[in-house]
Amino acid sequence: MSKATKDRAQAKRIVEQQRAAERRRQVTIWTSVAVVAVLVIAGLVGWGIAAGQEDNKTANLVTPSVAVDDGTAFAVGTGPVKIDVYEDFMCPICGQFESSVAGTIDQLVAANKVTVQYHPIAILDDASSTAYSTRSAAASAAAAVGGKFAEYHKVLFANQPAEGSAGLDDAKLVELGKSVGLGDDFAKAVDDGTYKAWATKVTDTAASRRVTSTPTVKVAGTNLQDRSAAGLTAAVDAAAQ
């Protein structure tokens, strides 16, 4: 090969390399732009959907007339010490808590020592195939409107379905309501899902107060660590001082 041919070949190779490098640069720029665009759009979609869900919540919201604490809880008793109980009717530990302290709470209420504010939140919808948490919380709101929250709350925990099951169906929720003396208005509210959006709102309000697990029990605003009957009584006595 002559020197001239060699030089020509080398020059050609350099030009090709430069072209390839330029092509790679262009591809890198435009694919990067595409990636950023896709991620921004995905983020906006998420934001948009979440905003839509927020609107839905407020659009369908029916707040039970008897609800206290910004319409997010039901009060039992009229005593001076305030107890806040955040429960999910699906949550097994809530069931255990209820069975161990329900008697103590009844006594404290009867002795006019405490006001118990129940916040029926729905954070375990995934634990049943029928979003039992939301449906049961909504049903408890209907029971409260019918003046039977305390009774219905008890009977729901007494009949608590297992985690991972289908939960109790609406017919069973109505039947349990009838068993504590609730009537047709209650049945209609359960069937229509009147208070489902409200259950979501209560959950939202609880989350904004950093209530991330159930049961969360607060005595006079302070988290109760020892959730036994003795622990509760001691905390109430301390708060009453």
């Binding site: 990636v35 896709v38 991620l39 995905a42 983020g43 998420g46 934001w47 979440a50």
Partner: peptide, 14 residues
């Protein structure tokens, strides 16, 4: 919480 799952899916697809 609303944006994150969509970002994750988009990254996965990319």
């Amino acid at each position: 919480g609303a944006v994150q799952p969509f970002l994750e899916i988009a990254l996965g697809l990319l």
